[in-house]
């Protein structure tokens, strides 16, 4: 990690800790903000957050590893989470899974080499009456078909273009 990047991360975390009054009870919102911007909570970030809240980094680590939406490993810009729970399963999630793998060229639990997409399973999304369902970041897609999968992925790809400023900062 470059020194400048570390400084940026440090600044962000200091701001977050300030915003939440260095109160340990706000660990989760802080982690969620870091996860969203940096797409993971790195060792360095964990240390910084621990310092900011006056707790041990192991405590931060234990929280990061507990929640499915937080991760210590870098995730892609688009995190795709396909629901595998029974109603979506019966509605044909396997075909959707296969198509996602084909479109992205990766398996579940993997991130594309360009760091753009992460593909994951998830448990019940609460869209059981409209399965199969998946999330792309915060957005939910329902009644999926293999063709729809292709369209959604293409739409995501279109958003790439040159890096946005924020992404450049985050890198």
């Amino acid at each position: 990690m470059l020194e400048s990047e570390r400084n940026l991360l440090r600044k962000d975390i200091a701001e977050l800790c300030e915003k939440y009054g260095h109160d340990r009870a706000y660990l989760l919102p802080i982690l969620e903000a870091v996860q969203e911007k940096y797409r993971h909570v790195s060792d360095v970030a964990m240390q910084e957050i621990a310092d900011g809240l006056g707790i041990h980094p192991v405590e931060v680590y234990s929280v990061v590893t507990f929640y499915a939406f937080l991760s210590a490993e870098p995730k892609g810009n688009f995190i795709i989470r396909l629901c595998r729970t029974i109603s979506c399963d019966m509605a044909g999630k396997d075909a959707i899974a296969r198509q996602l793998e084909n479109e992205l060229g990766i398996g579940f639990g993997e991130t594309t080499p360009d760091g753009r997409f992460t593909l994951e399973w998830t448990n019940c999304l609460g869209m059981c009456d409209q399965g199969p369902a998946m999330m792309v970041n915060d957005v939910v897609f329902t009644q999926l078909t293999p063709r729809k999968v292709h369209e959604i992925i293409s739409e995501c790809r279109k958003q790439f273009g040159p890096y946005t400023l924020q992404e450049k900062e985050a890198r």
């Binding site: 729970t85 029974i86 109603s87 448990n123 019940c124 609460g126 869209m127 059981c128 009456d129």
Partner: peptide, 11 residues
């Protein structure tokens, strides 16, 4: 937190 499989009424 509505996480029980098959529940979506709270949504």
């Amino acid at each position: 937190d509505e996480g029980e499989p098959g529940t979506f009424k709270d949504r």
